[in-house]
C-alpha cells in the first residue's frame, strides 16, 4: 500500500513542483518587484516605494490604461469578426462535410493558426507597405485610392492589427463551431424542415443554442490569446503610431526590456496576471462544461 502511494506520487509530484517554480514563483516575485523602484541594469540599487508603481501606471500615466483599452478593443473586435466569419465558414464546411475536397480545404484553412506569428506579421508588414505592398497596389489600381501608411495612421493601424489577428484565428473559431454543429441531432433539422422553418429560424432556434457553449469557450480561449498579443505588434507597429496599438504585453515588454524599469514593468505584469486569472477561471469552468456535453453526445 505504501509502496503504491509512492509510485502514485512519482507520477504527479515532479510536474507539480516544476510548475510551482515556474508559475507561483514568478507571480510572487513580480508582486515583490512591483513594490520597488528597480532597474534591470542596476538591480543592486533598487529601493522600496510601495504602491507607487501602480499609482503611476494606472492613474498618472496614460499609456498603460490605453494599452488595456486597446487590448480589449482589439480582442472584442477581432473575436466578433472571428465568430461571424467562423460561423459562416463552419456552415460551409458542415454542408460539404461529405465531399472529399473538404479535408483538403480544411487543411488549408487551419494553416494560419499554426504559422509563426512573427512571420504572419512580417508578411502583412510587406503586404501593407505603402510603396511595395500588394494591398496598396490593389487599392490604387481598382479603387483609385492613393496609397498611404496603413500602419502609420492611428485608425488604419488598429484596423490592420484586428484584420491580421482575425485572419490568423478565424479558422480556430470555425473548428470549434463546426464541432458544435456536429452535435446538433439530425432529427432536429428534419423536424424544422417539416415545420417549414426558414434558415433564420433554424439558425436562431436550433443551431445557436447548441453551439452556444462552444462559442463561449472560443471567446474565452481567444481572450486569453489576445491578452498575450505581442509578436504581431512587435514586428508591425511596435505599439505605434503614437500609442494607437499599444497593448498590455508589449507595454510590459517595453518597460521591462527597453527602459529596464522592472519595478513598473512588474506592476503591469501583476495587473495582466490578475486579469488573466479571472479570464482563466471562467475558461476552465467552460472547458469542463463542454467536455461533459461531448461525453453525453
Amino acid at each position: 500500500m505504501n509502496k503504491e502511494k509512492i509510485e502514485k506520487l512519482l507520477f504527479i509530484v515532479p510536474t507539480c513542483l516544476f510548475l510551482l517554480t515556474i508559475s507561483i514563483f514568478p507571480f510572487l516575485y513580480s508582486v515583490y518587484l512591483s513594490l520597488f523602484q528597480a532597474k534591470l541594469t542596476k538591480m543592486h540599487k533598487k529601493f522600496f516605494i510601495g504602491w507607487e508603481n501602480y499609482q503611476i501606471i494606472l492613474f498618472e500615466d496614460d499609456i498603460f490604461p490605453t494599452a488595456i483599452k486597446n487590448t480589449f478593443m482589439i480582442a472584442f473586435s477581432s473575436i466578433t469578426i472571428e465568430i461571424i466569419l467562423g460561423f459562416i465558414m463552419a456552415k460551409i464546411f458542415f454542408e460539404i462535410r461529405h465531399l472529399k475536397i473538404s479535408n483538403v480545404l480544411r487543411t488549408v484553412t487551419i494553416m494560419p493558426i499554426m504559422l509563426t506569428p512573427l512571420c504572419v506579421g512580417l508578411v502583412f508588414l510587406y503586404i501593407l507597405n505603402p510603396t511595395l505592398g500588394i494591398f496598396s497596389y490593389i487599392l490604387e489600381t481598382f479603387f483609385g485610392i492613393e496609397p498611404f501608411a496603413y500602419l502609420g495612421q492611428p485608425i488604419p493601424a488598429k484596423i490592420s492589427i484586428i484584420a491580421i489577428n482575425s485572419w490568423q484565428w478565424t479558422p480556430f473559431m470555425m473548428i470549434l463551431l463546426l464541432a458544435g454543429l456536429m452535435t446538433v441531432p439530425n432529427e432536429q433539422y428534419e423536424a424544422a424542415k417539416i415545420d417549414g422553418a426558414n434558415w433564420f429560424h433554424v439558425m436562431t432556434k436550433i443551431e445557436i443554442p447548441s453551439i452556444l457553449s462552444f462559442v463561449l469557450l472560443g471567446i474565452v480561449l481567444r481572450l486569453i490569446e489576445c491578452i498575450r498579443l505581442f509578436d504581431i505588434i512587435y514586428v508591425t507597429t511596435r505599439g505605434g503610431p503614437g500609442i494607437a496599438t499599444e497593448v498590455m504585453a508589449y507595454f510590459t515588454y517595453r518597460t521591462e526590456f527597453r527602459s529596464f524599469q522592472v519595478g513598473t514593468g512588474s506592476a503591469s505584469a501583476v495587473i495582466i496576471l490578475i486579469i488573466s486569472l479571472i479570464v482563466t477561471t471562467i475558461a476552465v469552468m467552460l472547458l469542463r462544461r463542454v467536455e461533459k456535453n461531448e461525453d453525453f453526445s
Partner: peptide, 8 residues
C-alpha cells in the same frame, strides 16, 4: 510635403 508612409 513628405511621401506617403513617412509616419513610419
Amino acid at each position: 510635403y513628405m511621401p506617403p508612409g513617412v509616419e513610419q
